[in-house]
Structure formats: C-alpha cells, structure tokens
C-alpha cells in the first residue's frame, strides 16, 4: 500500500514542480510551489518523519510561501517582457540541469543510501520529535544556536536597512488614546441665547 501511496504523491510532487516553471502566470507558479511543498510533506509522513513533515508545512507553506505569494501578487512586473530573450539562457540552463542530474546519479550510485524498508525515522528514541530534539540540543547545539544568531542578525539588518524615520508621519500613541477620559475631551458650556460662546 505504502508503495502506491509513494508513487502517487511523488507523481504529484513532480507534476507540481514542473508546473512551477511551466506556468505562465507567476501567481499560479507560487500556488503550484505550495502544492509541491505540501506533497513533499506527504512523502515525509510516508517514511515516518511526521515531525519534519509538519514543520515543512508550518514553516514553508504557512509562512515562507505566504510571503512569496504576497510579493508576487503585489509586484507589477510585465512578465511578457521578462520572458523575451529567455532563449539566450538555454545553454546555461542545460548546464545547470546536467550538473544537478549528474550529482543525483553520483549520489545514488556511490552513496551509502538506506533502503526505505529498513529506514528508521526516529533512531534511538520513541518518537521522531524526540530523536531530532536529542541531536539538535546535544550534538549540534553550537550549530543550531549559530543558525539562530545568523537569522537574528539578518532580521535586524533587514529592519535597519528599511527603517526610515520620517518626522512628518503621524503616529498613534495608544497609551495616550486609552488614558483619555471624558473630562479631558468634553467641555460643557452654557451659552446664553444670541451671544454664543
């Protein structure tokens, strides 16, 4: 059963991955990409790595792809113009493709791959989550923390680069707004007729 499920999901991954580059509309491309991510999560579930599968969905589909979609939808790019002259890049594209294919072939021929039937998704622990947590917070603690710090630096860098202090923009001061009372804002007057205030 699992084999058929694998072929079905793998087919969906391949078709959607192909459609990412074949689709004319960039928004459709991103939607296909989302399907590819989601189906890859299905493949991870099939080998028993359910924690990684859920993380893939939460991080890539739930956050990264949303940003892709936002950017692609907002950009006003003339894609017909962009597509012109793509033929010039054919040799380069073929070169990259050949390199990728060669690497995959080399990895499968010379690599020590584990058979899917003997593959253990959670070595040395009861669940997948535990197994990942154990290596991540012991063996690879330094790398894990470094990755976190790099992300933090990247985030601060992006904020610093895009933050502009513009004095003319009006800002909401929530504390001031919520601490306003009726006596601060409303003043009752009793004007005499014909005189006004």
């Amino acid at each position: 059963m699992a084999v058929y499920a694998f072929y079905l999901i793998a087919l969906v991954v391949l078709v959607s991955a192909l459609s990412v580059i074949m689709a004319r509309n960039p928004v459709h491309s991103v939607l296909w990409l989302i399907l590819a991510f989601f189906s890859s999560a299905g493949l991870l579930v099939l080998i028993g790595a359910e924690f990684l599968a859920m993380l893939l969905v939460v991080v890539y589909v739930g956050a990264v792809a949303v940003l892709f979609l936002f950017v692609v939808m907002m950009l006003d790019v003339d894609f017909v113009e962009l597509k012109q002259g793509t033929l010039r890049y054919w040799p380069f594209a073929v070169l990259v493709g050949v390199i990728f294919a060669a690497e995959i072939v080399l990895a499968t021929v010379f690599g020590t791959t584990t058979n899917a039937s003997t593959f253990d998704a959670s070595p040395g622990a009861a669940t997948n989550t535990e197994a990942i947590g154990k290596v991540m917070y012991t063996q690879y603690l330094l790398l894990f923390q470094m990755a976190g710090i790099i992300l933090l630096v990247a985030m601060i860098g992006a904020i610093v680069l895009t933050l502009r202090h513009r004095p003319e923009t009006k800002r909401q001061n929530i504390a001031k707004q919520t601490s306003r009372r009726r006596s601060d804002a409303v003043e009752l007057k009793d004007p005499t007729p014909g005189q006004g205030i």
Binding site: L31, I34, F38, E50, F51, M54, L55, V57, V58, V61, G62, A63, V66, L69, F70, M73, T127, N128, T129
Partner: peptide, 21 residues
C-alpha cells in the same frame, strides 16, 4: 497522530491561502 497539535497548527496555517486566493 503523534504530532496531533502540530498537525492542527499546520492545517490552520494553510487556511490563509483560501483567503488570499
């Protein structure tokens, strides 16, 4: 599911696509 709560979180994070689309 062993990762039940994560599954719920993942599926609910997908809900935003229906709206954007």
């Amino acid at each position: 599911l062993n990762v039940g709560i994560l599954y719920l979180f993942a599926i609910s994070s997908l809900g935003v696509y229906g709206i954007i689309m």
